[in-house]
Protein backbone atom coordinates (compact mmCIF):
# COMPACT_ATOMS: atom_id res chain seq x y z
CA UNK A 1 0.00 0.00 0.00
CA UNK A 2 1.80 3.09 -1.24
CA UNK A 3 1.02 6.45 0.29
CA UNK A 4 -1.85 8.13 -1.42
CA UNK A 5 -2.33 11.85 -1.30
CA UNK A 6 -5.28 13.01 0.78
CA UNK A 7 -7.11 10.40 2.81
CA UNK A 8 -4.38 7.68 3.09
CA UNK A 9 -2.06 7.30 6.06
CA UNK A 10 1.26 9.12 6.07
CA UNK A 11 4.50 7.14 5.68
CA UNK A 12 5.18 7.24 9.40
CA UNK A 13 1.69 6.09 10.25
CA UNK A 14 1.92 3.34 7.66
CA UNK A 15 5.20 2.02 9.06
CA UNK A 16 4.02 2.27 12.64
CA UNK A 17 0.82 0.50 11.77
CA UNK A 18 2.73 -2.35 10.17
CA UNK A 19 5.02 -2.69 13.15
CA UNK A 20 2.19 -2.85 15.71
CA UNK A 21 1.01 -6.19 17.00
CA UNK A 22 -2.59 -7.02 17.61
CA UNK A 23 -2.20 -6.82 21.39
CA UNK A 24 -4.93 -7.94 23.70
CA UNK A 25 -4.47 -7.06 27.36
CA UNK A 26 -5.43 -5.14 30.44
CA UNK A 27 -5.86 -1.43 29.87
CA UNK A 28 -4.64 0.90 32.64
CA UNK A 29 -8.26 1.64 33.54
CA UNK A 30 -8.83 -2.01 34.37
CA UNK A 31 -10.81 -3.44 31.42
CA UNK A 32 -9.38 -5.98 28.99
CA UNK A 33 -9.31 -5.31 25.28
CA UNK A 34 -7.38 -4.66 22.10
CA UNK A 35 -4.64 -2.01 22.29
CA UNK A 36 -4.97 0.72 19.67
CA UNK A 37 -1.49 1.90 18.83
CA UNK A 38 1.92 1.27 20.27
CA UNK A 39 1.39 3.57 23.23
CA UNK A 40 -1.61 1.70 24.59
CA UNK A 41 0.18 -1.59 24.07
CA UNK A 42 3.16 -0.29 26.04
CA UNK A 43 0.92 0.80 28.87
CA UNK A 44 -0.46 -2.72 29.21
CA UNK A 45 2.96 -3.92 30.31
CA UNK A 46 3.47 -7.63 30.77
CA UNK A 47 -0.19 -8.57 31.17
CA UNK A 48 -0.96 -8.59 27.47
CA UNK A 49 -0.70 -11.02 24.65
CA UNK A 50 0.05 -10.50 20.96
CA UNK A 51 -2.83 -12.35 19.37
CA UNK A 52 -1.42 -12.18 15.85
CA UNK A 53 1.98 -13.57 16.82
CA UNK A 54 0.38 -16.37 18.81
CA UNK A 55 -2.15 -17.16 16.07
CA UNK A 56 0.38 -17.41 13.27
CA UNK A 57 2.99 -19.14 15.36
CA UNK A 58 0.59 -21.82 16.57
CA UNK A 59 -0.95 -22.19 13.13
CA UNK A 60 2.46 -22.72 11.55
CA UNK A 61 3.59 -25.00 14.37
CA UNK A 62 0.46 -27.09 13.88
CA UNK A 63 1.11 -27.15 10.15
CA UNK A 64 4.61 -28.45 10.84
CA UNK A 65 3.27 -31.11 13.19
CA UNK A 66 0.56 -32.15 10.74
CA UNK A 67 2.92 -32.39 7.77
CA UNK A 68 5.54 -34.39 9.61
CA UNK A 69 2.97 -36.51 11.39
CA UNK A 70 1.57 -37.55 8.02
CA UNK A 71 5.09 -38.24 6.77
CA UNK A 72 5.80 -40.29 9.89
CA UNK A 73 2.63 -42.32 9.43
CA UNK A 74 3.56 -43.21 5.89
CA UNK A 75 7.21 -43.85 6.70
CA UNK A 76 8.44 -47.27 5.65
CA UNK A 77 11.60 -48.77 4.31
CA UNK A 78 10.47 -48.59 0.67
CA UNK A 79 11.47 -45.94 -1.82
CA UNK A 80 10.06 -42.58 -0.63
CA UNK A 81 8.37 -40.38 -3.19
CA UNK A 82 7.84 -36.66 -3.53
CA UNK A 83 6.56 -35.08 -0.39
CA UNK A 84 7.59 -37.99 1.81
CA UNK A 85 11.10 -37.67 0.46
CA UNK A 86 11.26 -33.97 1.34
CA UNK A 87 10.24 -34.63 4.95
CA UNK A 88 12.66 -37.51 5.29
CA UNK A 89 15.48 -35.46 3.80
CA UNK A 90 14.88 -32.74 6.37
CA UNK A 91 14.83 -35.26 9.21
CA UNK A 92 17.99 -36.86 7.87
CA UNK A 93 19.69 -33.49 7.58
CA UNK A 94 18.78 -32.63 11.17
CA UNK A 95 19.92 -36.04 12.31
CA UNK A 96 23.27 -35.67 10.54
CA UNK A 97 23.79 -32.25 12.07
CA UNK A 98 23.11 -33.67 15.51
CA UNK A 99 25.49 -36.57 14.90
CA UNK A 100 28.21 -34.10 13.98
CA UNK A 101 27.75 -31.66 16.83
CA UNK A 102 26.08 -33.48 19.70
CA UNK A 103 28.07 -36.13 21.50
CA UNK A 104 25.77 -36.94 24.39
CA UNK A 105 22.78 -39.24 24.31
CA UNK A 106 19.36 -37.68 24.40
CA UNK A 107 15.92 -38.51 23.06
CA UNK A 108 14.94 -34.87 23.18
CA UNK A 109 17.58 -33.30 21.01
CA UNK A 110 16.31 -34.74 17.71
CA UNK A 111 12.66 -33.66 17.99
CA UNK A 112 13.78 -30.36 19.49
CA UNK A 113 16.14 -29.54 16.64
CA UNK A 114 13.63 -30.66 14.02
CA UNK A 115 10.86 -28.56 15.55
CA UNK A 116 13.12 -25.52 15.76
CA UNK A 117 14.38 -25.84 12.21
CA UNK A 118 11.06 -26.37 10.49
CA UNK A 119 8.90 -24.19 12.70
CA UNK A 120 11.24 -21.20 12.53
CA UNK A 121 11.62 -21.71 8.81
CA UNK A 122 7.85 -21.64 8.34
CA UNK A 123 7.49 -18.55 10.53
CA UNK A 124 10.29 -16.83 8.60
CA UNK A 125 8.68 -17.87 5.34
CA UNK A 126 5.70 -15.65 6.13
CA UNK A 127 8.08 -12.77 5.44
CA UNK A 128 7.94 -13.54 1.73
CA UNK A 129 4.20 -12.91 1.54
CA UNK A 130 3.84 -9.34 0.33
CA UNK A 131 3.54 -7.15 3.41
CA UNK A 132 0.05 -5.86 2.75
CA UNK A 133 -1.76 -8.99 1.60
CA UNK A 134 -2.80 -10.51 4.89
CA UNK A 135 -3.19 -7.32 7.01
CA UNK A 136 -5.36 -5.70 4.33
CA UNK A 137 -7.47 -8.81 3.89
CA UNK A 138 -8.02 -9.10 7.63
CA UNK A 139 -8.84 -5.43 7.97
CA UNK A 140 -11.31 -5.52 5.08
CA UNK A 141 -13.10 -8.76 5.79
CA UNK A 142 -12.41 -9.32 9.48
CA UNK A 143 -12.27 -5.81 10.85
CA UNK A 144 -8.98 -6.61 12.56
CA UNK A 145 -7.05 -3.34 12.96
CA UNK A 146 -3.50 -4.65 13.40
CA UNK A 147 -1.79 -7.67 12.01
CA UNK A 148 1.83 -8.76 11.88
CA UNK A 149 2.02 -12.05 10.06
CA UNK A 150 5.67 -12.89 10.67
CA UNK A 151 5.84 -14.24 14.23
CA UNK A 152 9.64 -14.16 14.29
CA UNK A 153 9.60 -10.37 13.95
CA UNK A 154 8.05 -10.32 17.41
CA UNK A 155 10.76 -10.35 20.07
CA UNK A 156 8.44 -12.24 22.43
CA UNK A 157 8.32 -15.19 20.06
CA UNK A 158 12.06 -15.45 19.49
CA UNK A 159 12.90 -14.86 23.14
CA UNK A 160 10.21 -17.32 24.19
CA UNK A 161 12.02 -19.99 22.20
CA UNK A 162 15.53 -19.00 23.19
CA UNK A 163 14.59 -18.87 26.88
CA UNK A 164 13.07 -22.34 26.57
CA UNK A 165 16.38 -23.52 25.15
CA UNK A 166 18.12 -21.71 28.00
CA UNK A 167 15.94 -23.53 30.53
CA UNK A 168 16.91 -26.82 28.90
CA UNK A 169 20.59 -25.87 29.07
CA UNK A 170 20.33 -25.22 32.81
CA UNK A 171 18.22 -28.33 33.35
CA UNK A 172 20.60 -30.66 31.53
CA UNK A 173 23.63 -28.88 32.98
CA UNK A 174 22.43 -29.67 36.48
CA UNK A 175 21.12 -33.11 35.57
CA UNK A 176 24.34 -34.30 33.95
CA UNK A 177 26.93 -32.56 36.11
CA UNK A 178 25.01 -32.33 39.34
CA UNK A 179 24.37 -29.11 41.21
CA UNK A 180 27.91 -29.10 42.47
CA UNK A 181 29.45 -29.66 39.08
CA UNK A 182 27.22 -27.01 37.54
CA UNK A 183 28.15 -24.46 40.16
CA UNK A 184 31.81 -25.40 39.84
CA UNK A 185 31.60 -24.72 36.14
CA UNK A 186 30.31 -21.25 36.94
CA UNK A 187 32.82 -20.41 39.65
CA UNK A 188 36.05 -22.37 39.03
CA UNK A 189 36.62 -21.14 35.48
CA UNK A 190 38.54 -19.54 33.86
CA UNK A 191 40.83 -18.64 36.79
CA UNK A 192 41.73 -21.22 39.38
CA UNK A 193 44.37 -21.56 42.05
CA UNK A 194 45.59 -24.24 44.44
CA UNK A 195 45.72 -21.69 47.22
CA UNK A 196 42.35 -21.70 49.01
CA UNK A 197 42.37 -17.99 49.86
CA UNK A 198 43.29 -16.93 46.33
CA UNK A 199 40.58 -19.24 45.02
CA UNK A 200 38.04 -17.60 47.30
CA UNK A 201 38.93 -14.22 45.83
CA UNK A 202 38.79 -15.59 42.29
CA UNK A 203 35.32 -17.12 42.70
CA UNK A 204 33.35 -13.84 42.33
CA UNK A 205 35.42 -12.84 39.30
CA UNK A 206 34.85 -16.22 37.67
CA UNK A 207 31.20 -16.11 38.53
CA UNK A 208 30.78 -12.70 36.95
CA UNK A 209 32.53 -13.75 33.75
CA UNK A 210 30.71 -17.05 33.46
CA UNK A 211 27.29 -15.64 34.23
CA UNK A 212 27.73 -13.02 31.51
CA UNK A 213 28.75 -15.75 29.09
CA UNK A 214 25.79 -17.87 30.15
CA UNK A 215 23.20 -15.09 29.93
CA UNK A 216 24.52 -13.88 26.60
CA UNK A 217 23.73 -17.24 25.00
CA UNK A 218 19.91 -17.08 25.06
CA UNK A 219 19.98 -13.33 24.49
CA UNK A 220 22.10 -13.56 21.36
CA UNK A 221 20.15 -16.61 20.21
CA UNK A 222 16.77 -14.88 20.42
CA UNK A 223 17.84 -11.41 19.38
CA UNK A 224 19.79 -12.61 16.35
CA UNK A 225 16.71 -14.23 14.86
CA UNK A 226 14.50 -11.32 15.85
CA UNK A 227 16.91 -8.70 14.50
CA UNK A 228 17.38 -10.38 11.15
CA UNK A 229 13.71 -10.88 10.52
CA UNK A 230 12.66 -7.51 11.91
CA UNK A 231 15.15 -5.74 9.65
CA UNK A 232 14.03 -7.79 6.67
CA UNK A 233 10.39 -7.00 7.35
CA UNK A 234 11.19 -3.32 7.77
CA UNK A 235 12.91 -3.20 4.40
CA UNK A 236 9.86 -4.80 2.80
CA UNK A 237 7.65 -2.16 4.46
CA UNK A 238 9.91 0.62 3.21
CA UNK A 239 9.87 -0.83 -0.29
CA UNK A 240 6.07 -0.89 -0.04
CA UNK A 241 6.13 2.90 0.34
CA UNK A 242 7.40 3.30 -3.22
CA UNK A 243 5.00 3.91 -6.09
CA UNK A 244 3.40 0.56 -6.85
CA UNK A 245 4.85 0.25 -10.35
CA UNK A 246 8.43 0.46 -9.06
CA UNK A 247 8.20 -1.80 -6.03
CA UNK A 248 9.07 -5.00 -7.85
CA UNK A 249 12.48 -3.62 -8.79
CA UNK A 250 13.53 -3.66 -5.14
CA UNK A 251 11.19 -6.17 -3.55
CA UNK A 252 12.07 -9.00 -5.94
CA UNK A 253 15.86 -8.84 -5.33
CA UNK A 254 15.30 -8.39 -1.61
CA UNK A 255 12.90 -11.33 -1.48
CA UNK A 256 15.38 -13.51 -3.35
CA UNK A 257 18.11 -12.49 -0.92
CA UNK A 258 15.70 -13.08 1.92
CA UNK A 259 15.16 -16.69 0.89
CA UNK A 260 18.74 -17.20 1.97
CA UNK A 261 18.24 -15.31 5.22
CA UNK A 262 15.16 -17.20 6.36
CA UNK A 263 16.74 -20.59 5.80
CA UNK A 264 20.04 -19.51 7.30
CA UNK A 265 18.46 -18.06 10.43
CA UNK A 266 16.39 -21.19 11.03
CA UNK A 267 19.53 -23.28 10.60
CA UNK A 268 21.60 -21.06 12.90
CA UNK A 269 18.98 -21.23 15.64
CA UNK A 270 18.88 -25.02 15.36
CA UNK A 271 22.65 -25.37 15.19
CA UNK A 272 23.28 -23.15 18.21
CA UNK A 273 20.63 -24.98 20.21
CA UNK A 274 22.39 -28.25 19.49
CA UNK A 275 25.78 -26.76 20.36
CA UNK A 276 24.55 -25.21 23.61
CA UNK A 277 22.86 -28.41 24.70
CA UNK A 278 25.98 -30.34 23.81
CA UNK A 279 27.97 -28.03 26.08
CA UNK A 280 25.45 -28.68 28.83
CA UNK A 281 25.92 -32.43 28.33
CA UNK A 282 29.70 -32.39 28.32
CA UNK A 283 31.65 -33.32 31.41
CA UNK A 284 34.77 -31.37 32.15
Amino acid sequence: MATESGHGPTSTEYIQHHLSNLTWGKHPDGHWGIAHGAEEAAQMGFMAINLDSMFWSILLGSLFCFIFWRAAKKANTGVPTGFQNVCESIVEFVDDTIKDSFHGKSDLIGPLALTIAVWIFLMNLMDLIPVDFLPEAMLRWGGIPYQRVVPTTDVNVTMGMSLSVFALMIFYGIKIKGTKGFMAELTMHPFSSDNKIVQAILIPINFFLEIVALISKPLSLGLRLFGNLYAGELIFILIALLPWGLQWMLSVPWAIFHILVIVLQAFIFMMLTIVYLNMAHEQH
Binding site: T23, A48, I49, N50, S53, V157, M159, M161, S164
Partner: peptide, 13 residues
Amino acid sequence: NINLTLIGQAISF
Protein backbone atom coordinates in the same frame (compact mmCIF):
# COMPACT_ATOMS: atom_id res chain seq x y z
CA ASN B 1 6.95 -4.96 24.53
CA ILE B 2 7.82 -8.06 26.42
CA ASN B 3 4.52 -9.58 27.47
CA LEU B 4 2.63 -12.81 27.96
CA THR B 5 3.32 -13.78 24.35
CA LEU B 6 6.75 -14.84 25.59
CA ILE B 7 5.21 -17.44 27.87
CA GLY B 8 2.59 -18.40 25.33
CA GLN B 9 5.30 -19.06 22.77
CA ALA B 10 7.34 -21.07 25.28
CA ILE B 11 4.30 -23.23 26.09
CA SER B 12 3.43 -23.85 22.44
CA PHE B 13 7.10 -24.57 21.74
